[in-house]
Every structure is written in structure tokens, then in C-alpha cells.
Amino acid sequence: MVHEDGRHEDRRLAAYVGSELGPAEVEAVEAHLLDCDGCWQAVRDARRGRALAEAMRELAPASLRDRVRMTVEGAPPTLGAHRRRRRLGRSAATVVAALALLGGMVWAGVGRGGPDPASVTAVVRAAGARTAPSAVVADGQDIALSRDFLDGKPVMVARSAVPFDMPPGGRHLGGPDTPWVARRASMTVVCLNGPDNVLVVADLPAERLIAWATRGPAPVEPA
């Protein structure tokens, strides 16, 4: 051991504590530790620190395992980066259509009467909850949930492999394949179905939430 070179000593002792030395080096270090109180104490402290850090290993929550699987299974690898807001991105035409409609143009297609789809009810309920789950199952539909923030307010983002049904009173922004919007109490609900189905819910004006949800376009990688 070379005591004059403190850094060298640190490295050797760290490798010793981490069981990264060969047998001959271990023997040399241990022979040195018998005669050097300073290094002996350093090794004791380092072992204690390592044990404390190792105790911080955790098992992932079961719900996270499901959420990760749903993310992967619901996201083909050709869609480009998966940053949350980019995932919500759509074509510029969709943005234009949405903003134009909000400017006073006609709503094309209005949801019919009847109860809300269970999926919409579940996501709206999660959006209003103080602590939301990371996934829910509504009427057999698996829905992954995550929170984002817009203008300082929480936005519940829901994803599902199955398109979200439009509730009564909901309106498409254009044709039947365009995003739809609905209001539930103070909450605005915006849905972008297909290819990955996304529902966003927040206590925000519809115009603001639509602009945020449709911000894009998402980068598309060559097939």
C-alpha cells in the first residue's frame, strides 16, 4: 500500500470493499490492514456505507411493472421519441383544426345520450383524486395513468391500447377520426384516439388543454 498517494489508496480500498480485487491483491490489502489502523478504520466505514446503500435497493411496485408493459405494448418503436408531450403530438393539421373550431367553427359530431363510458369516468375520477393510481381497469379496458403539469395545474394523462369512447355531450373537433372534447364538472376531457389512444383530463380551459395535448408534431423515424 502506498500511503503517500492518498488517491491510490482510496482506489485500492474501494475495490477491496467492493470485492473487485484478485486473490493476490486481497492478500496484500489484508496484510496491510493488520498493521495500519487508519486503513482499517477506513475500510470499516466504507463497508458500513456500502451496506447502507445496498439496503436502499427496492422492489418495483407491481403496478409499475404493468404500466411499463402497457407503455411498450402500446407504443410501436417507429413513433420516435417518447417524451410525454411529444407522445401527445399529432399532425399540425390537427392543431389547426382544433384551434379553428375553438375559434367558433362548427362542432362536427356530438356524443349521444346515456351514461358515461366507464373508462372516462375512471380517468376523471383519478384526475380529481389526491393520490391517483398508476393504472386502472375500467369495464375490462386497461388504462395506464400518469400526471403531468400545465400552467401549474395537474393534468391526468391516460393511455390505453383500446380507443376511448366519447361520452354524452362530447364533440369531435373535426370528422369522426379527429380528437374529441368533453366537459365533466370543472374538468376538460380531451381524447386523441389512435394509433396510441390518449385521454387527458385537467381543470383547465378546453382551448388551453387541446393546444397542449395536440402540440407536436411527433418526430417520425423512417420505417
Binding site: R7, D10, R11, R12, L13, A14, A15, V17, G18, A42, D45, A46, R47, R48, G49, R50, L52, A53
Partner: peptide, 19 residues
């Protein structure tokens, strides 16, 4: 690698003290 080992050694010892 040596830099990582040096950081590890100091960090582990400091962690024990702080804990």
C-alpha cells in the same frame, strides 16, 4: 475506473458518517 473507485471510497465513508 480509478476516479469512480476514489469517489466510491469517499462517498461510502461519508455516507456512514452522515447516517
Amino acid at each position: 475506473r480509478g476516479t469512480i473507485l476514489a469517489r466510491l471510497h469517499r462517498g461510502r465513508r461519508q455516507l456512514a458518517v452522515l447516517a
